[in-house]
Design a protein around this nucleic acid. Structure first.
Length: 708
DNA sequence: CATTGTCGAAAA
DNA sequence: TTTTCGACA
């Protein structure tokens, strides 16, 4: 790599938060706007100002009230608050949208912040040089500025020297491409941006802000020397803070031009080899830092300051805020799991506390095995208690943060995983009841021999939630743990025995007797009765229709046996008829599980029909190639667009309607699961002679989640 | 103010 | 050598 053979663009969105708000509320367009967060003190802190407001003298870091004084007509838009803290998801999503457009130009894209990105367009420039160069006119660059000279002179010069490979020629072409990029961003998203075009990231960044908004600036390498005469050291990326300050003081300089006069040796001597060389180069406008392509973030963090009087002093308040932070983090982690197929393995708990009038901030790293709210809150709190609890039993926290990172890929193709809750009449239940001489068994967790990297997380989560439920809802129940083990390449990756400690602890706290694999206390019965609708694999289409009718009838029977008294759903606090409550709870339960399996988002399902025939809404777009199907399992009637039997089942080669194929695949999966159930509770050779799948639903229920 | 990242030193 | 911490940007 030479110093000037690349063309780098920095795209920077103009007052981005304001633009996002203006797009959301078009009435604001053209009017002075500022975005503020936390309105409680003096009109809130301004974090973005649009150009009409800047013309009136409003700046960032003002309070809302000051801005109002400067510009009475200003529109102060609040950053939404969720869970007591600023919610920036609006802007994140908008930033992602922009990044997606940028990515259509080149994969060499580096997101520098929510509203900034570097693009290495060297190849695009080379390509454009080959094809078309009549575009190089001032008209096509009418929003472009050149540092140190006029655009017309610059172009005349470039075109006159018809050595097509000169650096300035490339920069000019880069300018054309940048105009295209910005235009595309505008047409696709409605957002305006500015750009800096130069041979490296540092320079692109330096000039990007010279002409704004909706303009772009090219910095030719020859112009660097003059430009640096008036460029303060602290304007340069990574010299804006403490180190830049030290540098200025050490050599008594303020401008980059002065830095260029200091010999390399001296710089190396003063700092270290790496820094010295970097400074020497940067003073000459040379920077080899590549555009590192990273489209997705390496960590997901949430934090909050508690300044002054707001400092957290009690265990309760700390737990409360950890809960809020963890909730947001999990929400974003779940979204990330869907989008990027990865799971964070590590969590960093950060905090800063005041001790003897000094602020001390620190952080502790913890493993992150589950995206489970309570577990995360507990872990984080343990950390804080251990590190921050003062001798007098109080705390003084000024800042708390959670950050999840160390992502690991989740295999895309998963084996079937299953989680059963077995009704009291099932053979499995009877068998275990006898074996353990228990009065009642409400749970049976059973494993398959998974050969999947993701399954352990799911099962572990189920176990974890069970321990939580045990803790929270002690009722008259028995818990039986069927010793679940999961293997991956012959190595045990999950063992329910690991939870023995949790159960032991629980038993101690709740003051009940503990026996391994048998937890005899009280547990509220959760969901357990989603009606499963099978499709028989008969070729006779009408036969299948009949079968559905039978299921329908039986559903009605079931409903009639229930007294209809309303109860409050603990999950959503809605009042639900008792006969529907189980199904309703199942809905919540299935939703949780399916979220974990990232099935819901991707499924074709628009609504879920529960036992009572009510619809649970869900508006989702079907993603291409998505073959997730869990929820279709629970769907009674899919929309019938056609009666054509166009789809062929890969397992049995039979033809199906397009809208039925997913259900049918589920049928095969369910069949496999049932074979397993029956295999454990009846004869050993039943796999050779499989029992007939029941075609009628009974009070027994199965909750299953899987991928075909 | 909130977020995401990097880097060197210290600890494991 | 690898991981963690703390400081900065």
């Amino acid at each position: 790599m030479t110093a000037t053979n690349r063309v780098i663009v920095l795209i920077d969105m103009d007052c981005f938060y304001c633009q996002v708000e203006e797009k959301l509320n078009p009435k604001l367009k053209g009017k002075p706007v500022a975005v503020v967060q936390y309105n409680t003190w003096r009109g809130g802190g301004i974090i973005a100002v649009n150009y009409p407001a800047r013309d009136e003298g409003v700046t960032r870091h003002m309070r809302g009230n000051e801005a109002k004084k400067k510009c009475p007509s200003i529109n102060l838009v609040q950053v939404p608050e969720v869970r007591g803290k600023a919610d920036l998801s609006k802007y994140r999503d908008a930033g992602k949208m922009v990044a997606d457009v940028l990515a259509t130009f080149t994969p060499l894209l580096q997101r520098a912040s929510v509203d900034e990105a570097y693009l290495d367009i060297t190849e695009l420039v080379e390509k454009k040089i080959q094809t078309n160069m009549n575009d190089l006119t001032t008209k096509n660059l009418n929003n472009t500025f050149i540092v140190g000279c006029d655009i017309k002179d610059f172009l005349d010069n470039v075109i006159k020297n018809k050595e097509f490979c000169t650096n300035n020629f490339k920069l000019a072409i880069g300018g054309l491409i940048a105009e295209e990029i910005r235009h595309e961003v505008f047409t696709k998203t409605g957002y305006k941006c500015s750009a800096g075009i130069a041979h490296n990231k540092i320079l692109a960044k330096l000039v990007c802000g010279l002409h704004k908004p909706n303009k772009q600036t090219i910095l030719p390498q020859e112009a660097v020397e003059n430009f640096f005469e008036i460029t303060s050291i602290n304007k340069v990326n990574s010299l804006g803070g403490k180190f830049g300050q030290t540098l200025s003081e050490d050599f008594q300089i303020t401008f980059m031009g002065q830095l260029a006069k200091i010999p390399e040796k001296e710089l190396i001597q003063k700092y270290d080899e790496k820094t010295g060389k970097w400074l020497f180069n940067i003073a000459r406008g040379i920077d080899f830092e590549p555009v590192t392509t990273k489209l997705i973030s390496k960590s997901i963090a949430c934090c909050k300051k508690f300044q002054g009087k707001a400092a957290l002093t009690t265990e309760e308040s700390i737990k409360h805020w950890l809960h809020e932070l963890a909730e947001e983090m999990i929400e974003r982690l779940e979204k990330d799991l869907q989008e990027n197929n990865r799971r964070a393995k590590q969590m960093v708990v950060s905090f800063s506390q005041e001790n003897n009038k000094k602020d001390i901030s620190s952080s502790r790293t913890q493993p992150l095995t589950l995206y489970n709210l309570k577990k995360i809150v507990q872990t984080a709190f343990d950390v804080i208690k251990k590190n921050c609890l003062k001798a007098d039993g109080s705390y003084h926290l000024k800042f708390v943060g959670l950050s999840a990172g160390h992502f690991e890929d989740v295999s895309k193709v998963r084996e079937i995983t299953s989680f059963f809750q077995i009704g009291q009449n099932s053979k499995g239940y009877q068998k275990h009841k006898q074996k353990n001489e228990c009065n009642e068994i409400k749970y049976l967790i059973k494993d398959e021999n998974f050969d999947s990297t993701e399954a352990p997380n799911l099962i572990e989560n189920v176990y974890y939630q069970l321990t939580q439920e045990l803790q929270e809802n002690p009722q008259d129940l028995v818990f039986y743990d069927d010793s679940c083990r999961i293997k991956n390449n012959n190595e045990t990756v999950f063992d329910s025995k690991d939870f023995v400690n949790d159960f032991e602890k629980l038993a101690d706290n709740a003051n009940f007797e503990f026996q391994q694999n048998k937890y005899t206390d009280q547990l509220q019965k959760p969901s357990s009765s989603f009606f499963v609708k099978y499709f028989d694999d008969t070729e006779d289409f009408e036969e299948r229709e009949k079968m559905l009718q039978i299921i329908e009838d039986e559903k009605d029977d079931f409903q009639e046996t229930c007294e209809d008294v309303n109860e409050i759903c603990p999950e959503c606090k809605k009042s639900i008829p008792k006969s529907e409550l189980l199904a309703h709870k199942d809905f919540h339960f299935a939703l949780k599980l399916s979220r974990d399996e990232k099935l819901f988002e991707n499924s074709t399902v628009k609504s879920i029909e529960t036992l009572d025939g009510k619809k649970m809404h869900k508006s989702v777009k079907r993603k291409a190639n998505s073959n997730n199907a869990l929820l279709t399992f629970f769907i009674k009637n899919q929309k019938e667009d056609s009666l054509d039997l166009t789809e062929i089942c890969l397992e049995c080669n039979k033809k199906f309607r397009k809208e039925e194929i997913n259900c049918h695949m589920d049928y095969h999966a369910a069949k496999r699961i049932h074979l397993e159930i029956n295999a454990t509770s009846s004869s050993t050779n039943c796999k050779k002679n499989p029992p007939k799948i029941k075609t009628k639903t009974t009070n027994k229920s199965v909750i299953s989640f899987f991928k075909p």
